[in-house]
Design a protein around this nucleic acid. Structure first.
Lengths: 132, 132
DNA sequence: GTACAATTTCAAGTGAACTTGAAGTCAAGA
DNA sequence: TCTTGACTTCAAGTTCACTTGAAATTGTAC
């Protein structure tokens, strides 16, 4: 049970096998071992790697960014300046994302509460789009 | 100055003219007036509409969703149940997005702070990917 | 050993959100 | 009037994140 086929990994992770191969192709998932015959064999560690990818995606990272993030993690040297720089930049992007999402939340909440006919009237003066 | 060409609108909003025509095509931006000859003329109100679209996009809404959102705003009837239902559903999606972004933030922050070699060691037990 | 499912690679297709290109029309200045 | 640049429509191209299909190989169950 320590060695999983791509089908088992896909099933457990809720992905298609094609997605897993794609992740490997673009380098966000390390190349797994191969048994004689060429079939891939995964250790359970792959689930953590997949979970990281999915979380990063849901947080708005592109695959290219995830690739950089992951390659930082994969290196055998201590986390380097390169990873740190990217991570710090991403952190501020995440904060901006959160701020925007909260702005959108306010707009929707005021839309739900009020009885106005259009956007101009509906968003209270102080919360107009331009200000957000 | 009350009537703007598509080029002026694009310039001020930081978009391509093609994007503005595209928004009109898919119905997230109302059809503007046309002068003799067929050129579009916009009132300054278009900037608010564009700002709403951009904010919604940045908050993770698809164009199809924005279309529904906008059509709710555009109707001449008071904001109806249909708009409200969608908005409420989107609100909870936004909250989920914010939660995920905060989870990613925690991961990145611990990555920045620590000296570990890989993801397994790097994310403190309690904050492993699976738990987020 | 014979099915049959799962896997392999590689190329091409998909949907979303636009952009680019072609071919022609319109508007403003010299 | 002529030129130049902005505009028009329509179709096709682009990027991202995958999926789908084809054709061959491998692994497993009987």
């Amino acid at each position: 049970m320590n060695e999983l086929t791509i089908g088992e990994v896909a099933q457990s992770a809720g992905l298609r096998t094609s997605a897993i191969r794609y992740y490997e192709d673009i380098g966000v998932l390390p190349q797994p071992a191969r048994v004689y015959g060429g079939h891939r064999r995964y250790s359970p560690r792959v689930f953590q790697q997949l979970a990281f990818i999915q979380l990063a995606q849901q947080a708005g990272f592109s695959m290219a960014e995830i690739q950089t993030l992951v390659s930082g993690f994969d290196e055998n040297a201590p986390l380097g300046v390169r990873w740190r720089t990217l991570a710090e930049q991403k952190l501020s992007e995440l904060e901006a994302l959160i701020t925007r999402a909260q702005g959108m939340k306010r707009i929707l909440e005021s839309g739900i509460r009020c009885q106005c006919l259009n956007l101009d009237e509906c968003i209270p003066q102080k919360e107009r789009c331009e200000k957000l």
